[in-house]
Design a protein around this nucleic acid. Sequence first.
DNA 1: ATCATGCTTATTGGATCCAATAGCGGTCGG
DNA 2: CCGACCGCTATTGGATCCAATAAGCATGAT
Lengths: 225, 225
Amino acid sequence: MKPGQRVVVALRKMIASGELADGERIAEIPTAERLGVSRMPVRTALRTLEQEGLVARIGARGYAARGPTISQVTDAIEVRGVLEGLAARIVASSPPAPQLAQKLKDCLAQGEALFAKGYLEEADLERFYTYNLAFHDLLVDASNNSAIAYALSRNNHLPFGSAAALALDWDDLPATYAHLSAAHRDHVAVCDAILSGDAEEAEQLMRRHARAPLANGRLTHAPML
Amino acid sequence: MKPGQRVVVALRKMIASGELADGERIAEIPTAERLGVSRMPVRTALRTLEQEGLVARIGARGYAARGPTISQVTDAIEVRGVLEGLAARIVASSPPAPQLAQKLKDCLAQGEALFAKGYLEEADLERFYTYNLAFHDLLVDASNNSAIAYALSRNNHLPFGSAAALALDWDDLPATYAHLSAAHRDHVAVCDAILSGDAEEAEQLMRRHARAPLANGRLTHAPML
DNA sequence: ATCATGCTTATTGGATCCAATAGCGGTCGG
DNA sequence: CCGACCGCTATTGGATCCAATAAGCATGAT
């Protein structure tokens, strides 16, 4: 990976993990030395992270980390809910192309296979992650609305803003099974609403689905891009 | 203004005005010479504009302008609708602070004053612009949801993505009066729903309000930041 | 004759250097 | 003793230089 990208993801991780505390000042030179690059990649990275809302300018003198606060996390989840809800509504509003219906079925089949055996093993968590992302991406893609994709791509950089934000508990597989299979059932329900052309229902279901992690109460770490 | 900012706004204008056609390649060196600066501000500006969605990367070789297509415009309006709808819902969901109610009243009073005399004059368009922006900002601000503000701030850079996107017709003031007073009535209705705590109604009204320009059919130029 | 391969060149990304600026501290005067 | 002013320094923004890379073209081989 090129230095520029490396610095961006490194800083994202340091902010998300709290290694850079909320409000802590980020100067270019120390950061560059710390990461073993010149000031230039750091400069561009800070500009990028500012656009992403992960750092904020301190007057005219440097940037400060904007650590993930609980409210930021819940806010990002709410926003993802309405955006994906809109995507679902749009998709449901027009008669589905046969190939879209097929893609949806194929995608849901992956989820079905995961839960068929009635329990989860560790490797399944990774598979669910992939399947879940695929479903959400499929929907956004099918909505064919560039502004949604654009807004979501930004939101995804926020902590827990991505569809990957799941209440995963690697130590309590039964509880995780309950959460994830509920999510899968949500997917099926959304798909049904879409295929039957019920736009209102599709949107409501999708929004509730996105908000599920809020109800679960537990927000643990999920991989962030 | 510093060179960096100058280049960003200059490129934004050139893209919005079509001076840089959709899909046209933007190389750093010619652009830098054209604007009379070095390559560096152009580099940072292109990164910024990429984040804003106004240019897209062409493989590993430069950027291309993403001109304002009709679908981009309508997409951005839809997205703004759901985001501001969410803001309205959130505000309506909790009992309004007295000072918020006062601010809303003050804001709506500005609109009321504009339409009281039953017709519009040129200067009123500017005033309505200010009032309209103030109302929308007030709502987003009151929702206290940073992710909404963040997503909207990005969306605002898209053509017609901002609340300033109104079907303004400077030559047909009576028709404009109809549109704008309808918008003001929308504001009043949203405000009523919020103060009475009807979250569902507030959201629906706000979404319809945002989509009104789509129904008006006419999308003319509005100032873009 | 056509396709593949290698060379040339144009263009972007990174590093280093230089200038402008703001913040901070010290000192001097009231 | 306190406040204001001046100068120093730390830090960011811009310019130029260098390296890496990919695209385009030409040439040769099959």
